[in-house]
Design a protein around this nucleic acid. Structure first.
Lengths: 256, 256
DNA sequence: TGTTTGCATTGATGTGAATCAACCAATCTT
DNA sequence: AAGATTGGTTGATTCACATCAATGCAAACA
């Protein structure tokens, strides 16, 4: 085997491990020394990719592991007694899924994949054991849980007090920010979720979301062609959807 | 000093420590052996009581410790750019306050006391250090953070999809459940928050909250005399506000 | 190539809750 | 005790968004 080939292979191996993962700066490895990243990597498993509609877990199932998006995207939702679906969150690469279930040991919502998606799976018992051992890991795990609390508080505020335009603007800004953090364009991106899913998440009717997109387009704030979005005036969107003053919430800003 | 006196004094001491605290079964000590409860107790401080309007912390301040309600109640809220207050949560005895700030190290909302309230204060660095040492403590801390995520998801669902009546009913059920868990009556209780604060939390206008109370009263579901509430038909309220099927969210059910 | 299917958009209409405006009861002020 | 202030309730009106209904339009399929 040539030197060249072996270096490519080791690169690929790295890619598939926490050490080589481009998301390490957003995810659990933050703050860990290399040796400890290896220990973390040892408890992580990576399955074959999921496809649109696949479930990571279902409402009511026992909780055993958390999931971390490696590529693609996931929605969390729950079904009410009438069978209606209510989206409670979207997850992008580097974001942890299943945290709501630690408390009871039962998943209170379901997680469905929105597009071809790779996920890392971390058995929670192992993660707890390793966190006891590695204070930095415990610290980052607590931070990530806290981030979720922070984001959800922001959503509660948004849903409680803001108009349709404000909600949609805030949603787009959130996505834009998060894509940017992941090295993608902040101005042009692809929506992996349908209008209905956006509407459900924002507590609006599909038609309202659609009309709001159209209105933003008329005002020259963005171009929306089905699922591809091009933001033309991020400042104006921020003006509309910017949640609040200086120090406060940054909706869905799920960075590390 | 008589034997009698000394036993009273030691009882009072116990009351003021985690070991003798009636809330231990809801709070951080869950799962700890007696010796470890002492270690936890050693890092907790208890100040003189707070009074209505006192702040535990303000939006924008640096985060250094979490607060746990010992008696009384607290609201968390944030002010938007126009200076409007938006309540994002109410906290009862045994519930942890400030968790949203672990992530950034800055409080993204403010916490104000609603009535005469005693609180335990736990420096977060100390808590992290002790959690590394005591796996049971780490476990419970993670569970409590997860509970917060769980509850907030429930609120997102409630605010996104439910009518005024459903929101108010869910709110009352949540309070009733939580009071009951704390050894108080599930049917008769006192609201420490004003109509305006309830309205802000539920994303409604004060008038709507007031009218909904009146309507519930007309239907014979409850009696509301200013701040004292007497629930007459909890089943009916559950029917209206019960969030969803079997396994799903129990809004604000902040038990351990 | 025409047909089906599943989103997305647009228009017309209806409604639940916000807003505006009194009013009342309790508490505070002096 | 009279006036002022605050918190809560009730009524009238308005409006933002939901709902209902039709159409457009792309990808999937026969």
């Amino acid at each position: 085997m040539s030197n060249n080939q072996s270096s490519i292979i080791s690169l690929l191996k790295d890619r598939a491990s926490c050490k080589g993962c481009g998301l390490a700066s957003l995810c659990l490895p933050v703050g860990l020394v290399e040796n400890d990243v290896d220990k973390l990597n040892a408890i992580v498993t990576r399955n074959t990719p999921y496809h649109r509609g696949d479930m990571l877990y279902n409402q009511g199932e026992a909780f055993s592991q958390i999931y971390i998006v490696k590529s693609g995207s996931v929605k969390a939702y729950y079904e009410d007694k009438d069978g209606n679906e209510h989206v409670v969150g979207f997850f992008l690469p580097g974001e942890l899924i299943g945290l709501e279930a630690i408390h009871t040991g039962i998943h209170s919502c379901s997680a469905a994949v929105l597009e071809t998606t790779a996920a890392c799976e971390v058995p929670f018992e192992d993660l707890e054991r390793l966190s006891s051992e590695l204070p930095s890991l415990q610290h980052q795990l607590l931070r990530l849980l806290s981030r979720e609390v922070h984001n959800d508080c922001g959503m509660v505020a948004l849903l409680g007090n803001n108009s349709a335009e404000e909600r949609v603007a805030a949603f787009l800004i959130s996505l834009s920010t998060r894509f940017h953090q992941r090295g993608l364009s902040a101005n042009e991106f692809h929506l992996s979720m349908s209008r209905a899913e956006i509407a459900s998440f924002l507590g609006l009717a599909v038609e309202t979301v659609s009309r709001t997109f159209s209105r933003f387009q008329e005002k020259g704030l963005l171009e929306a062609e089905r699922k591809s979005i091009k933001i033309l005036d991020i400042e104006a969107l921020n003006e509309i959807g910017g949640l609040c003053a200086s120090t406060a919430f940054q909706l869905g800003q799920k960075q590390a």
